[in-house]
Computed example of a mutant assay.
Amino acid sequence: MHGVVTLAIVVIAFVTVRPLDFTGRGLAVAVLLVITTIALSARHLPEPWLPPRVAPLWLAVGVVAAAALIGMSRSGSGYLLAYFLVGHIGYRLPLRQALALAALSSLLCGAVLYLRLGPGHELVPWTLGVTTGLPVVVGILSRSRQGAVEAGIASAESAERAARAEARTAVLTERSRIARDVHDVLAHSLAGINMQLELADALIDTGDLTKVREAHDRAHSMVKESLKQAQWTVHALREDSLPLLESLEAMIESSGHRDVLTVGGTVRELPARISQNLLRIAQESLTNAARHAPGGTVRVELVFDTASTTLSIRNGPETRETTAGVGSGMGLLGMRERVALLGGAITAGPVVEGAERGGWQVRAVIPE
């Protein structure tokens, strides 16, 4: 649209401005008209093509040429070129430079007409030349509006990038959560089954088929329990509410321990994500106890305080040879991540006193 307007102004100037030929004053008018036209047409060039240091120079040349054109021409609408050129100055240049060139245009054009330096001075009042600097205001306002639009677009793009980054972070967080849950289920289930199968394999050499059958039955029972745990994981991934105490008791029993759970404080229903993570912490701790301290005693304590819930799992040293393989190393890291996401605190380390001395303890405190 701007290009069409510029073309129309240039065409009008070439049609109306006189004299216009190849000799004398007509040649001078033609040269000035070409210079002014080039200066006005350059407004459509991309800004990288005209560096900031060059723009004031070519616009100043255009202003001087437009003022000279008004003085040299006998008739026509050459002053329109000055108006549009000054308007673009307000849009293209910084405020101080724009106002300076606008003042220069008013001064030169007004002086040409006031001093009657050209043959066409009697056709228009000198105040018309002074007003050639006024369109700079329109250019400045247009520049401000364009800046606001660009700022709005930049803000929208920034918000979109932030939303994409947030969505990606949410996806990665969810992947980490699923990875922890899958690890917990596999580690707990497969470690227990592997221990029973290795025990059965070792007992075959002794010829004690009764004990072999018992180990086989325990492994078979663990397989069934693993299916239940898989169902727990599916519910947890769907953020369904799990019965904390019942699930914890079943988990402890499936690990081969009975009557080792102590509950303190006033029992209450916890948010689903807290129950889920407490169960996973207990599951990982029981798995580690079975892997690294087979045959050792286990004690589990769940305390409901006013503003937090504390889960402690303590196991004694192993009482028989450790047969489980090396763990993945992700168990303790996963527990720390779970507690950190809930804003809680966790401690894990060896037991240095009491009946379980030489064993291991995990203690997680989850605020509500």
Rank of each mutant, 00 (worst) to 15 (best):
M1P: 06
G3Y: 12
A8Y: 04
V11K: 05
I12F: 11
F14D: 08
V17D: 05
R18G: 13
G24K: 00
R25E: 01
R25M: 04
R25F: 01
A28S: 11
V29I: 02
A30D: 11
V31A: 15
V31H: 07
L32G: 01
L32I: 05
L33T: 06
S41R: 15
A42D: 04
L45H: 04
L45P: 09
P48H: 09
W58S: 03
A66Y: 00
A67Y: 15
L69V: 08
M72Q: 15
G76C: 01
G78W: 10
L85C: 02
Y91N: 12
A98S: 09
A100N: 06
R116C: 02
P119T: 01
H121Y: 13
E122L: 09
L123H: 03
P125H: 06
P125M: 00
P125V: 05
P125F: 00
W126S: 06
T127E: 07
Q146S: 12
E150Y: 04
E150T: 10
A151E: 10
A151H: 10
G152M: 06
I153H: 13
I153V: 06
A154D: 14
A156T: 04
A159P: 00
E160G: 03
A162P: 12
R164M: 15
E166A: 05
R175I: 06
S176Y: 12
I178E: 00
V182Y: 06
V182K: 04
D184N: 06
M195Q: 12
Q196M: 14
E198R: 12
A200F: 10
L203R: 03
G207C: 03
T210P: 00
E214I: 04
H216M: 15
M222H: 12
V223G: 15
E225M: 14
K228Y: 02
H235G: 06
R238N: 09
E239C: 10
E239M: 08
E239K: 14
E239V: 11
L242Y: 13
L244V: 01
S247M: 11
S247E: 10
S247Q: 13
E253F: 15
S255T: 13
D259K: 12
V260L: 07
V260I: 10
V260E: 11
V260W: 08
T262E: 14
V267N: 01
L270N: 01
A272I: 02
R273K: 11
R273L: 07
I274P: 14
N277R: 15
Q283E: 13
Q283T: 09
A289E: 00
R291N: 07
A293F: 14
G295M: 07
E301K: 04
V303P: 01
F304N: 00
A307I: 04
T309I: 14
I313G: 05
G316E: 02
T319L: 09
T322M: 05
G334C: 08
G334D: 13
V339M: 03
L342A: 05
G343Q: 07
A345F: 09
A348H: 11
V351Y: 08
V352H: 10
V352P: 04
G354P: 03
A355Q: 00
R357A: 15
V362E: 05
I366E: 05
P367K: 11
